[in-house]
Write a protein that binds this DNA or RNA. Structure first.
Lengths: 148, 148
DNA sequence: ATACTCCCTACTAATTCTATAGAGAAACAG
DNA sequence: CTGTTTCTCTATAGAATTAGTAGGGAGTAT
C-alpha cells in the first residue's frame, strides 16, 4: 500500500508537470491545493530534490520545478524514493535485495519465485510509465504515437 | 510489502500442501520448523481456518490440514486475508474499494489509472497461482500441462 | 479423569508512519 | 545593509499499525 508520503509526492510531481511554462511553484501553494500539511510536504519535496527530480530556488518568487522533462520521471522511481523497493518481499527485489533470514535454499523458495514475478509485473508498469504518460498528452507515449 | 503474518501464513500453507497424505500437522510443529513464534502462528492459522482455507481438529493427534486441494488455494486470497487488498491504493481496489478523500473526479485521476493497472497485473499473477502451482508438481498447471 | 491441542480475548511491546517545531541559509527588494 | 520570503535541515512528538505475549476455555482421545 502506498504511504501518504508517496501519494503526496506523486500529486506534487503531477502538479508540477502540468505547469506548462516550467514556472516555479511554492510549497505552500502545493500544500494548499493538495490539502497536505505544508511542513510535511516540505520534507517530501526536499527528498525528491535530493534524488534529482526537482530543482528549487529560495527567496522571493522561489519554489520548485521539475529538474527534468516529465516524460523522464517514472512512477517506479518516485515510489522507490519514498516507500522503498517495489517487490513485496526483499529477497525478490532488484534494487533493495536482502536475503531472508532463515531461508535455506533461496533458489527453490516458492514464495520468492512468485513474488519475483509480481515484482517484474509491477516494474513493467511503474518503470515504464512516466508522469507525462499518466497525464496523457505531451508525454512519451503521446509523442511516439504522433511520430515526434 | 508483505507483513510477517502473511509470510508465516504462506509458509504454513505451503508446508501443509506438501504433506502428501493429508495428515494433520500441529501448530507447534509448524512453528518449530518455521522458526515462528507459536502463539503468533496460532492466531494466523485460526484466521485462515475462519476463511475456509484450513480444517482443524483439537485434542491428542489434532492439528491442521488444508480444507481444500492445494490447487484451489491462491496466493491472492491468502494475502487479502492477512494484509488486505492487493491494490497499492484503496480507490484502485476491487475487493476493498474506498474512495479517496478529497479526490474530485476519480475517473480522471492519473494516479488511480496507473495503480489500477498495477492491481490488475498483480491479480493476474496472484489470483491465478495456487500454492500447488508454486510447489511445482501436482498443481493445476502441472495437471493441465500433462492433460489430466 | 487427564493430557493434549486448538480456540478465544485481552494486552503489551516494537516499529513505522505522519506530522510539527524551530532555527538556519540563500535570494531578493528596497 | 535590513527585512522579508522561501527553501533547508535536524530533532522530536503523536498516532497508527504490526508483531508478539499471556492465560484461561473448550473440544477430543485414551
Amino acid at each position: 500500500m502506498l504511504s501518504k508520503k508517496t501519494k503526496y509526492a506523486l500529486r506534487a510531481l503531477l502538479m508540477l508537470a502540468e505547469q506548462e511554462d516550467a514556472e516555479m511553484i511554492q510549497v505552500s501553494d502545493i500544500a494548499q491545493r493538495q490539502k497536505a500539511p505544508k511542513k510535511f510536504l516540505e520534507l517530501i519535496l526536499l527528498e525528491l530534490k535530493k534524488h534529482g527530480l526537482l530543482y528549487s530556488q529560495r527567496g522571493k518568487n522561489g519554489g520548485y520545478v521539475l529538474a527534468k522533462p516529465a516524460s523522464e520521471i517514472y512512477f517506479g522511481q518516485i515510489i522507490r524514493i519514498m516507500d522503498g523497493p517495489l517487490a513485496p518481499i526483499p529477497c525478490a527485489s532488484l534494487t533493495g535485495y536482502r536475503r531472508c533470514v532463515d531461508c535455506e535454499n533461496e533458489a527453490k523458495c516458492p514464495i520468492r519465485r512468485v513474488m519475483r514475478k509480481v515484482r517484474d509485473a509491477m516494474s513493467e508498469i511503474l518503470d515504464k510509465t512516466s508522469i507525462a504518460d499518466a497525464l496523457g498528452s505531451s508525454g512519451r507515449k503521446f509523442r511516439r504515437a504522433h511520430g515526434l
